[in-house]
Structures are given as C-alpha cells and as structure tokens.
Design a protein around this nucleic acid. Structure first.
Lengths: 186, 186
DNA sequence: TACGTTATGGACGATGCAGTCAAGAACTTC
DNA sequence: GAAGTTCTTGACTGCATCGTCCATAACGTA
C-alpha cells in the first residue's frame, strides 16, 4: 500500500504528486489517508523513511560477507547499480530525487538523506577493509576515504543515468573507478 | 531578469514555483511573462538553456589553458566545486535539480542535461590530455574514461553536498579522486 | 442480535494555480 | 502634438489541489 504511494512520489516528485493521485493509486479514500498519516508531508516522510532503510539494507546485504569474495561483491554491487540506472531511468532513485527537490526546505528529508549516504558509505568501508585483508586493496590506504570516493561515484552514476547516459558508459565509469583503487605492492 | 526566474526555479523546483512568484521576483506582470515566453514550461526551457550554456562555458574557462598548469587547474576546478556545493550556492545545482525532477517527463530538459554533461566531460578530457603531455598523468591511460570518472565524482559531490555533507568531506573525496588518477611510470 | 467504536470514502469548501484579456501606458513616426 | 503601434499590467476565469467532514460500513464486544 505504501509502495503504491512511493511509486507515485517516485514518478512525479513531491510537489508534482497530488493526494488524489495517491488515493487513486492506493485504492484508499482521501479521508483514510489523512486519518492514517496526518497529511501529505507526513505521508511522504513515512514513505521516504521506509525507502531509505531499504536502501541501506540493500547495501549491507550486497556488500557484507566473507573476505575472499569482497571485491567481487563490490564489483557486482557497483556494476549492478550502473545497469539498473540505465534501465529504469524513467524512475531513478527516490533518494536522489527527494534530496534534490526537498532537502533545502525540509529538515527531515535532509537528515534522512544524509544518514542514508553515511550508512551506504559505512557498508562500502566495511567491504573495502575486507578487500584489504584479502589482499585486493592496498592495506596502507584509508578505506573510509576510498569508500567516500566510491559513494560519490555511485551517486554520480545515478545522476548521469537519469540524464540518459547509456549503460556501457556507466559501466565503463564504474570499471575505471574500480581500476583506480590502490593495489597492494607486490 | 532571467536570473531572478532561475533563482526561483532553483530554490523551489519547477512544480513548486508559481508564475505569480516569478512575476513578483522579476517585477514583471504575468501578462508580460506569458507574452515574452509563451508559458511556464517555455520560460523554464529558456532559463535552463542559458544556465546549461553558462555551466559548459565555466568548465571550459576553468579547465583549458597551457599544459604546464593543467593539473593545477583541474584541482582548483574540482575543489572549488566541492566548496561551492557545501555552501549550496553553486550554479550546477539547477542542472542536478532539474534533471532529477523533470528528465523523465520532459525530453527537452533531458536532452539539454545530457549535452551539458557530455560537454563538461569533453572539457575534462581536454584538460587530462594536457596533463598527459605535461607528465602529470600516465599517457597510456584513456583520458576520456578518466574524464568520465571525474564527471561522475563531480556529479556525486553535487548530490552529497545537497544532502548536507560537510565541506571537508567533499574536499577529501575530491583529493582522493585526484590521487587515484594514474601517474606516469618513473 | 444489539450496541459502541473505529475505519472508510467521497462530497465539499477554501485556496492556489496557469493562463487570458482588455484597458491603459509608453514609445514611434510623421 | 496627433495618430498609430507595441508593451505592460493586474484583475479575472476556470480548474486542480489540500485538507475537512460526516454519513456509512466494518468490526469488536457482550
């Protein structure tokens, strides 16, 4: 039910989505929506919270595991994102969209977006540390800084994909980023 | 005059900006706005076009010049962007915002965004080739691919800055990206 | 079944919006 | 300065939207 509301916001943004549209999409009456959530803004906050948690969970699920395959997981995570961005660019990422539209006028959204990015970076840091233990990344490098770089690339690919950059270019950027990570000295 | 309209769209997005607000901001009557531009959508396209051109010009101006200082210019361009993003007063913000909000429902905006990104990447490629001639970057590397990576980082920093990531973190990401560029063999 | 409580939903009011238009201002030309 | 032309303007229209309200349905309890 919240999924239908999320998809509406996802497609047409916050200001561009009417409560009537959400009522139609969810099959609920407007009175029920207002009774259950208190208003458009609060409904969005609820939807956004759930979505951010799902995003963080997804990053943790994809990036954590045994050290041996950490680099493969990292590669799969980033390449999968590049492909997903190119394929469903009609939607893109709700976090990116909401952050761009609402962050400067809505403290709740701004805070939630920041926390989400920080948690994705944490998942990346944990993965990179596993890569270092496994000998795929130079252990002298600062894993947190590298994770920051990969997070920026991740968000950048999102932005480029939304503009219509084709999949092969997005994948090439991802591979270039992975190739630029510092290798351990031989 | 168009600057005032641009600032309105920049602040509150396309759907969130009323023509009355633009009339108030520009000091023009609504009739004049409609007479001069034909409607809200067309006015936005005009504003967006000018802004995209300014963004491309800015990239070219900052990144082109003699080979000797190419790497310094690249560093200054990216670090300047990181700082500007943290202060949330950057021109590129409108491109990110408009792309996120309108790209899937407005092919004019989508096309213009893509062209803008491609031109910024071109400016980056030219700069990196100068860096290669000057011995700051490995000449065996593919300058265009590296430029794609830097463009993604550039857009990613934009997105992170919007969420409220602090300036030192954004600058650190930029420095990590620059440090990851392949150096020439000694 | 009878009764109290809660959930539902669509009609409704108030407001805000994009876009129009006719009256008048400003400017040009002779 | 008069006549003609273009620009400017803000009140106005019709429609979309947010949020409310109340009649009604569903549910729980005894």
């Amino acid at each position: 039910m919240l999924d239908a509301a999320r998809d509406q916001f996802w497609m047409t943004g916050y200001a561009g989505t009417s409560m009537d549209a959400i009522a139609a999409a969810t099959g609920l009456g407007k009175g029920s929506l207002y009774g259950a959530f208190g208003g458009k803004r609060k409904l969005f906050h609820r939807v956004y919270d759930d979505h951010c948690n799902a995003t963080i969970d997804s990053a943790n699920r994809h990036l954590s595991g045994d050290d041996e395959q950490a680099f493969e997981r990292l590669t799969a995570y980033l390449l999968g994102h590049a492909t997903a961005c190119a394929e469903r660019r009609q939607h893109g990422c709700l976090v990116a969209k909401a952050t761009a539209e609402l962050t400067e006028h809505d403290e709740v959204v701004a805070a939630r977006s920041l926390i989400t990015f920080e948690n994705v970076q944490l998942a990346l840091t944990g993965n990179l540390e596993a890569c270092q233990r496994n000998g795929d990344i130079n252990p002298a490098a600062d894993a947190q800084q590298l994770a920051g770089l990969l997070l920026a690339v991740h968000r950048g690919i999102e932005a480029l994909g939304k503009a219509g950059t084709d999949e092969s270019t997005l994948r090439s950027i991802t591979e270039t980023a992975l190739a630029a990570l510092p290798r351990p000295p031989r």
